[in-house]
Design a binder for these strands. Structure first.
Lengths: 212, 212
DNA sequence: AATGAACTCAAGCAGCCGCTTGAGTTCATT
DNA sequence: AATGAACTCAAGCGGCTGCTTGAGTTCATT
């Protein structure tokens, strides 16, 4: 057992370097987007050598893609989990709260969680090629939201509900990216929720009430 | 007269080069954001020499700032004009329609108008330093919107109305930037308006109705 | 003790970056 | 015809880019 724990210390150190590169890349990606993140900036922040990127990932692009994919998966898992608690009897407020929860949590937590949210939001604006691989999970969150929406808004046709879902998601992404996000982060969590949920629910609901 | 028209042909050609650089810079800015726009890319697109940038603007940064400022002014003037038609008797739908009008027009028009919208939206995410010079005009649009909002929602306190205004603006910016914008651009203008205005109005209105 | 896999490192490569330079062209003014 | 301002151009500068290389270190296995 002790032997097994000590095995492959080299390998563990290598893993630490790899993770450090991923973390540094994620943070810079969240801050500045896909362009404007250089190899040396990442390695300096991670305390690694430039060659470590080639060794562990093959290229800067591969590291970026890896960091983005990691972020997307973390976000989507959180989103799916949040929507999972809903059923067809849930209200629009509950849907809005569930929809906004990952973002509100990330704002409150800051650090890596927030970097994940910001990176995901940036991907929504400038999609890297090959991101379609995760489209299925996005589909799932959309379907979950749609189910609750159509139960609450029987008069509105599906295409419009899809549109509203994307508007709501876009709004949350914007809050994560824009400077207003920093102001939100400084607010107590309950206050964010109290202000944000009615707005998202309102976007879902539409005004005046039915479709037109 | 004929003489005056022919005067300074050199100067006119120089102006054409200058404008071409500004246009090319704007389009690339809208497409790829502030990082990721290179000097040679701009000059190639504009059919000009690299030195023309230094000559007319001093530096790439100065050209970028100039293009951004130009875009912000065009957008803000359109926004102020759209909100100008409102008064304290206007409904939330009218406010939403006026708020969304510049974006919907830009989507329909495409080309430079759309590039202006996209650039403005990107500035909202990654503000360049020194953009505070135009903060006054932003204030004006916010004040106009707030006046109509508080007349329609007397029960909601001002800070929350400000928040909703920023949410609505963020939502529109997102639509301009994200790939969904391309889908919207393909739709007939009335359909966009019919789908979008209730969502924006819903965000203003909140759900359920009053503040909490 | 020898072997070899896993990993790190300094150094250097070609290529693009923003920017400058000095010569050249065009044209109104004199 | 001469002058000079406005403008364009090809060429080239140092610096930074992503990436590679070959030598070096660490450590489990034999």
């Amino acid at each position: 057992m002790v032997r097994a724990e000590k095995t492959d210390l080299r390998r563990e150190a290598g893993q630490r370097t790899r993770d450090g590169l991923l973390t540094a890349a994620l943070e810079l990606l969240a801050q500045r987007g896909q362009e404007g993140v250089t190899l040396r900036e990442i390695t300096d922040r991670a305390g690694a050598n430039v060659a470590a990127v080639s060794y562990h990932f093959g290229s800067l692009k591969a590291l970026r893609d890896s960091a983005i994919e990691h972020a997307l998966e973390r976000y989507l898992d959180a989103q799916i989990l949040a929507l999972d608690s809903l059923d067809s009897t849930s209200t629009l407020q509950e849907l809005a709260a569930a929809f906004a929860r990952p973002m509100m949590r990330a704002l409150a937590a800051g650090g890596q969680d927030l970097a994940v949210m910001r990176t995901v939001a940036r991907v929504g604006i400038d999609p890297p090629q090959g991101w379609e691989r995760l489209a299925g999970k996005f589909e799932q969150t959309r379907r979950d939201a749609l189910r609750v929406l159509s139960a609450n808004l029987p008069g509105v046709d599906e295409q419009e509900l899809i549109f509203r879902t994307r508007c709501a998601a876009g709004l949350l992404n914007w809050l994560a990216l824009a400077p207003i996000g920093a102001e939100l982060a400084a607010m107590p969590a309950e206050q964010i929720e109290r202000q944000l949920v009615p707005v998202v629910a309102g976007a879902f609901h539409g005004y005046p009430a039915v479709g037109r």
